[in-house]
């Protein structure tokens, strides 16, 4: 059957599947956009009134909401991607056996993995673009480089989606998903989301600097504020290397999990 030749674009059928599902369940995406907006209003604007400008930054004129907004966007990009490849994929892997059915077709584990990562990116783009538009409307962006936030969020999404793929192959039960939260929440709170790195003692700074979310936040913040480009380049390198390594490991592990 000539129509069944092996096209590399086969991974896109995973995206088509998810699009069909989201035709019915699109309000889920709204929740993902509202969450960072809530944090921004509560912490950024609310606490920002008490804080004023952020001490300890090179540029002392940065207001607290402008400091927090890019961090929340990076976090939203991370969460969206991780949720897709951990929780949602684990359901399909363990309970629903969706992938077992998919792998009886010419689809490979690699196509499944790439398809799910692509889908996570697509969602991430929608969420980060909407968030960017929202914060621009309330006047928090001041420079054209803020537009670079969208490709930055894409890179963050790709890295965390790939990390999530590795994690999902390690999960033994639903209880294990709690462990993901145990890592994600402290990372969210301490990766310079709400205060600059300089507030920590040196050893803690090193620890924070090792976290992927820290680099994600620095990248988005550089685009958002238009400063700190040297750091942004380091962050890009960090995220690309980590993401590719994770993807390689994930595809191998996924293949071993699915083809016994």
């Amino acid at each position: 059957m000539s129509e069944l030749t092996l096209r590399p674009g086969r991974a896109f059928s995973m995206v088509e599947r998810n699009l069909l599902i989201y035709r019915h369940t699109w309000p889920v995406l709204l929740a993902e956009i509202f969450e960072p907006m809530m944090y921004l209003l509560a912490f950024g604007v609310g606490i920002g009134v008490l804080v004023g400008n952020v001490p300890g930054l090179a540029d002392t004129t940065v207001s607290f909401p402008r400091f927090v907004a890019p961090a929340l966007l990076a976090t939203a990009a991370m969460n969206g991607a991780m949720n897709e490849t951990t929780f949602n994929m684990y359901a399909k892997l363990a309970t629903e056996k969706t992938y077992q059915a998919i792998l009886t077709t010419p689809m490979s584990s690699r196509a499944v993995a790439l398809g799910e990562v692509t889908w996570a990116l697509l969602r991430g783009t929608i969420v980060s673009t909407t968030f960017l538009v929202a914060v621009s409307l309330i006047g928090l962006t001041g420079t054209w480089t803020a537009l670079l936030v969208v490709p930055a969020a894409l890179l963050i999404g790709a890295t965390f989606a790939s990390l999530g793929l590795v994690v999902v192959t390690l999960l033994r039960s639903w209880q294990d998903t709690q462990l993901i939260q145990l890592v994600m929440l402290p990372m969210f709170l301490f990766s310079t989301t709400f205060f600059p790195l300089s507030v920590y003692p040196k050893p803690v700074q090193w620890l924070v600097e090792a976290l992927p979310l820290y680099h994600s936040i620095e990248l988005v913040r550089a685009c958002f504020l238009g400063t700190g480009w040297r750091h942004a380049l380091i962050a890009i390198a960090y995220l690309v290397v980590l993401g590719l390594a994770a993807l390689l490991v994930a595809v191998r592990r996924l293949d071993r999990t699915l083809r016994t």
């Binding site: 059928s13 069909l20 629903e96 969706t98 077709t105």
Partner: peptide, 20 residues
């Protein structure tokens, strides 16, 4: 192993897409 997130018809359609 039917895809419980899709309708009956969508199950057939998407499965066909996996074959290209």
């Amino acid at each position: 192993t039917l895809d419980t997130e899709l309708t009956v018809r969508e199950n057939l359609l998407i499965y066909g897409r996996y074959f290209g």
